[in-house]
Design a protein around this nucleic acid. Structure first.
Lengths: 348, 348
DNA sequence: TTTAGCACTCCTTATTTTAAAGTGCTAACA
DNA sequence: TGTTAGCACTTTAAAATAAGGAGTGCTAAA
């Protein structure tokens, strides 16, 4: 992106156009801007400025003789502009949201399922956008306990509880010779050696041990440990999604084709998970506007995401998905507050 | 419903109108019916018949000088009419679907999650309607194994595996004094006494035992057994839903308001679960057309549902939800075939 | 550099027109 | 008595036309 220098007045105009369009999704005219935002130059001047802004790629004219509509670049400008302000000047408001929510979530502290369901539902309710939460990546959490249960002839159900209290189970095909007794020993072995250790570490250590102790060639044990390896590997699949129909009531998706498109996109959990996996943890709040999105299907939407943490370590992500013409101020505020609340709750 | 006697010709006309409307959602005219369905009377005669059918409540005219549209009563007539035929004359086709699907599902036999996901997805894919499956009611299944895991100070995670290999977990608040050791004893006790027994029986028996052995007043044991009671009670919440956007591409839901409505309705899992819970198991295939539905929100839709079984005992339900103007023939055929496949798979 | 003024463009909405589909009725017919 | 041919009448959907309005771009003057 080339670095464009806009004078102060041009910035004010741009800001006003975006603000106005977010408020009401209609092309914005020069006279309207002048009056509504108290400019003391006449509309023709505003017109010139808007024309310049269009040349610079910030505004777009649906047709000659129509007002202007912000481009993605304009939203980006707007967001960068208000971002600091939101967090600074609305901190009291944020604090209050955090307090109330934390109080609510505290009760669900031990039940991750309810905790995240409640979070996404509230997030969507508060903003009327789509609320999302990606559960902590199991691989990065620690083992609380594992159990193996023989099921029918040739299967083993592995039940893994991590230190967040999330229970996962996996059905593993196994040779019929394995007995429940052997499985119990295996569980005991893993539980006593690896309780509290991260899953990726455990898998590595198991592999090391296998090689070192030369039991690699003992068929049965090797098979058992392979079960274990399988049981301890998790793909990321726990995404909570709330409030699709909230999106469907927005004026931005007011025709049949758009509604179908959005329902199809949001139904695609896989895509959303991939999106959130790729968001780095180092930013407090990540904002992806329209075309900035790596995924084609999401390019007419904006995403506000923030990691939630436990003792400074990022666990997962909560996010809002809404139209590009989003109330960014409110959205940022809420995502921020909700992520903080979740962090508080999990760190208690 | 009053019992109306239609002569053979009137029935043929009614049938033709419904068939035609299902094929293309446009009011059906008398001339069209005459030509397309090979009546050898002239259109005026058909017109008279259609007028009679309207008086009887089978047809509806959007406005004078428009063709006729079937009412719910007409669909009901149509379905009753073709029902037997479908199962009889298309049994070869059904057989083939069952064979193919059973082959596919067999591999997922031990993994209920995948099994039902695959089923609903295929069902929706094949019909372009909404595919649904209600998991076996846990209460009616049998205990395979239970485990209690102490989690943090004041919680216990109960992990229950039933005889279908479905794993459920529950977080239970408990007094901090309980140790993992005690919980293990409890699990051992339950597993050795109740393995293979139905959950509702187990709960009852536990209660009886409590009273008989006069340990009711021992606080600790009483508390532990209460945990157990809680762990063994399940509300029905596992509903698989696939293909919402398939519905959204149908001409029946071609305007914004209808799309919003349907998304909102389908998102309401609770409602759908209630609907399916109330469907009795004794019918092979239950068809609910429009106004027949007990729930207001579903009255512009039709539902085709069928229980799947294990050794003759009904476990749960699979279903299709689509527009009233549904291809009932195809829908009935597929629901029937899919339920049978599932039954085969589970009974193997 | 800014402003007033004005012609021009394009969209939106309402109105009218036209064509087509289909009915309902009447009178004749078998 | 049921069926048919014929025709006037409704109503809608689509196309054409007209009116209104919002907003621009440009020019010339301040």
């Amino acid at each position: 992106m080339k670095n464009i220098i806009l004078d102060e007045r041009a910035k004010r105009v741009l800001w006003a156009v975006v603000e106005s369009y977010i408020e009401k999704p209609e092309p914005v005219g020069s006279r309207y801007i002048m009056k509504k935002y108290g400019f003391d130059v006449c509309s023709a001047t505003i017109r010139n400025i808007m024309s310049d802004l269009e040349d610079e790629g910030f505004l777009f004219q649906p047709h000659t003789s129509a007002g202007r509509v912000p481009t993605d670049l304009a939203y980006r400008f707007y967001v960068d502009y208000i971002f600091e302000e939101v967090l600074k000047f609305r901190s009291a408001e944020v604090k209050k949201i955090i307090e109330n929510l934390t109080k609510k979530l505290r009760k669900l502290r031990n039940n991750m399922n309810s905790l995240f369901l409640e979070t996404t539902q509230n997030l969507s309710q508060a903003t009327k956008y789509l609320g999302l939460a990606l559960l902590p990546e199991t691989d990065k959490t620690a083992l609380h306990r594992i159990d193996f249960i023989k099921f029918r002839e040739d299967s083993v159900i592995a039940i893994v509880v991590n230190d967040k209290g999330i229970v996962k189970n996996k059905i593993i095909r196994a040779i019929p010779e394995i007995t429940q007794h052997e499985l119990n020993s295996l569980a005991d072995f893993v539980n006593s050696n690896y309780h509290g250790k991260a899953f990726d570490e455990i898998r590595e250590d198991l592999l090391r041990r296998l090689k070192k102790e030369k039991i690699y060639w003992d068929k049965i044990i090797s098979k058992i440990l392979k079960i274990c390896q399988q049981a301890l590997y998790f793909s990321r699949e726990d995404l909570y999604i709330s409030g699709l129909y909230n999106l469907m009531y927005l004026p931005d998706f007011c025709d049949v084709e758009k509604l179908r498109q959005i329902a199809k996109t949001i139904q695609n959990r896989h895509l959303l998970i991939k999106l959130f996996e790729n968001i780095s943890d180092d930013e407090e709040i990540k904002i992806i506007i329209g075309e900035e999105n790596p995924f084609e299907e999401l390019r007419n939407l904006s995403v506000i995401a923030s990691p939630y943490k436990e003792r400074g370590k990022s666990l997962g992500i909560i996010a809002l998905v809404g139209p590009k013409r989003m109330n960014y101020e409110r959205a940022i505020m809420f995502v921020n507050a909700f992520a903080k609340s979740l962090t508080n709750t999990l760190s208690e």
